[in-house]
Design a protein around this nucleic acid. Sequence first.
DNA 1: CTCGATCCCTGGACGC
DNA 2: TGCGTCCAGGGATCGA
Length: 326
Amino acid sequence: MPELPEVETVARGLRQAILGRRILSVRFGKTDFIDDPAALEQHLPGRQIEAVERYGKFILLRLSAVSRETRVAANGDAAQASLLVHLGMTGQIAPSPAGRALEKHTHVCILLDDGRELRYTDARRFGRIAYLTKALLAEELTGFGTDPLEVSEMEFANRICGRRARIKALLLDQSVLRGIGNIYADESLWKAKIHPARLGAKLSRKQAETLRRVLRHILQKAIVLRGSSISDFLDAKGEPGEYQRHHRAYGREGKSCYRCKTRIRRAMVAGRSSYFCPTCQHSPRGFAALPLLGKNGRKNKRTEGSTGSGKRRAQRNRREEMGNHL
DNA sequence: CTCGATCCCTGGACGC
DNA sequence: TGCGTCCAGGGATCGA
């Protein structure tokens, strides 16, 4: 699940691997997660990849102008276009020899001028790809919060301490800070000894500063270790990260706290599984964790029966498969 | 403003 | 072994 450290790792890898390459052509598999596939086919060929940047959980490939004429005709706008890539849950993007067999769920192949292809694979297609002119990109990126690696003490406290939402929800809210996901929210809250369900307004300025500091430290360390490979995250070289070995809370339900040996518990906060130590991280009044796992390791069941997801799946499967030309 | 619910999607784990 | 069910989660959206 790519969050800031994973996306940063991928961006660095791509920067090293494909900076300066020219795009020759584009082909697609399924395109339902691409804003406007035709725009990619029309505008990518001929462009050079001039920069690779990260913005929150987005990867931005900055594209050159095709020619002086295009630059003039487009009034400078198309000349500064970008390809925006969001990896969602399962997205991977990496260069590959053009002749190599396609991995399953490969949905975009961008042929480069050195005989390689930049390939995007995404089993769940929660990701997103869009070709955006300068103006559209600027519009797209408004409303995001500050990068947590750059946010000042004052700004962080101001963005947290005045809010009635739960701190976990605030950390996950990309308009508060950009780039944090479920793993690094839980890890930083554990380190700062703050319960995920605490309200932002209930944090002291001192607690907020502790949280900012540990969050930054954890993100930096995770970047050094090339992110966390939980399910299937791989960097631009196809290699897994190492930070999952350093997780102290996330995914550790029932295991003992590294500080106090209490068993780590799980609760639903902001609609996400949230892992915390019930001793180190004081729960707000009346907030209950979910019952611990049974000894068979089976996850806790949801409340009442809902056969909805199964029915929905069946309906989707009956729909005509379309759009796969690879 | 904040919340939960619902949807998108598929692989994998698990129950029976 | 195999089918049904649940779960993971970022983000959009909608109603309470």
